[in-house]
């Protein structure tokens, strides 16, 4: 596919502003990599993502455990969650700028909002799906309420939480680009939009490739983490199939 693309651009009549050739993109990629420019933008994007994601994970898991475990918390928070969940995080970007300026705060806010709900909902589902037999066994071994939550429901919800974290991370990679396109002076989102404005389509492609690669790498890491943490899940899968 790359060869056809290369040939089409080189021998056909394609304007490199519309579609630069793969070799040109690669050349730009290498030079930006060597100059450190790419690393600078990527690091900025990843830092914002990491902060927002960490906040969402901490909040989503904690609230998820409470809502999944305590009836009272569930009664109170469930309607609230249902009401706020459908809000598009992208639609919040202008508000975020209004409230937090165009600095770090607005991006972190948008990322947190976008990644919070998948983590929260998966945590709740995980806690609620705890096998009653495990609960019974633990209770008869002397475990009290809090110990049940922390030593039975939390580990049994862990694979669900992990799935939530994975989904949230991929959403995070989408949203960070959108928010940087609207309000930033650096980062991969800004780089892509700014390069388009000055007709450096090759840099646009470099940005796209970089963010996609990073997203892919992050998801791969999460999958490895899941395999290392939950060996019994794979064992169950291979038994069932």
């Amino acid at each position: 596919m790359l060869a056809v693309w290369e040939a089409a651009v080189r021998f056909g009549d394609v304007d490199p502003i519309i579609l630069p050739s793969p070799s040109m993109i690669a050349e730009t990629f290498v030079s930006m990599l060597l100059s450190g420019e790419l690393a600078f933008h990527a690091a900025n994007s990843l830092a914002r993502l990491a902060i927002g994601y960490a906040l969402a994970a901490a909040g989503g898991i904690t609230l998820g455990l409470l809502v999944g475990w305590f009836r009272l918390a569930s009664d109170f928070f469930t309607p609230l969650i249902e009401l706020t969940r459908p809000i598009s995080p992208i639609a919040l970007i202008p508000l975020a700028i209004l409230w937090f300026g165009i600095g770090l705060g607005s991006k972190v806010f948008v990322i947190t909002m976008a990644t919070f709900f998948p983590i929260l909902l998966n945590t709740i589902a995980g806690v609620k799906s705890t096998d009653q037999l495990m609960i019974r066994a633990a209770r008869s071994l002397g475990a009290g309420h809090m110990r049940l939550l922390l030593t039975v429901s939390l580990p049994s919800a862990a694979p669900f939480i992990h799935t939530g974290l994975r989904i949230a991370l991929s959403i995070g990679f989408i949203v960070i680009i959108a928010s940087e396109m609207v309000a930033a002076q650096n980062g991969l989102g800004w780089l892509i939009l700014d390069s388009e404005r000055v007709y450096r389509t090759d840099i646009v492609f470099v940005g796209i490739v970089t963010i996609s690669g990073l997203g892919l790498l992050a998801d791969y890491g999460m999958r490895l983490l899941g395999r290392a943490l939950f060996p019994w899940i794979r064992a169950k899968e291979s038994q069932n199939t």
């Binding site: 096998d131 037999l133 495990m134 019974r136 066994a137 633990a138 008869s140 071994l141 002397g142 039975v152 580990p155 049994s156 862990a158 939950f230 019994w232 169950k236």
Partner: peptide, 15 residues
């Protein structure tokens, strides 16, 4: 813990 129970389905903690 004065009354420990063993179930047919073992109920071991897989983690």
């Amino acid at each position: 813990p004065e009354l420990a129970i063993v179930f047919q389905e073992y109920a071991l903690f897989p983690w």
